[in-house]
């Protein structure tokens, strides 16, 4: 018979609390250290290169 680990014994509300705290902590870290903007800043050069290869009917 498999033995249940300690975290599985926790009541549902404690699990919910741990998950919420974890998600909050993660999101707040992203927010406070500006990680969202640091990531998108890395994406920009790739996007600009991509646009150079899009076909366009360029004329006056």
């Amino acid at each position: 018979m498999k033995k249940k680990c300690n975290c599985c014994k926790l009541p549902w509300w404690s699990k919910l609390l741990i998950a919420t705290t974890g998600i909050f902590g993660l999101l707040f870290t992203v927010y406070f250290f500006n990680l969202d903007m640091k990531l998108t800043a890395m994406m920009e050069p790739w996007l600009l290169k991509w646009y150079d290869h899009v076909d366009r009917d360029k004329h006056l």
């Binding site: 927010y31 406070f32 250290f33 500006n34 903007m37 640091k38 800043a41 920009e44």
Partner: peptide, 9 residues
């Protein structure tokens, strides 16, 4: 840098 080091407290 394009972006700032962190947000304000």
């Amino acid at each position: 840098s394009k972006v700032r080091t962190r947000r304000e407290w």
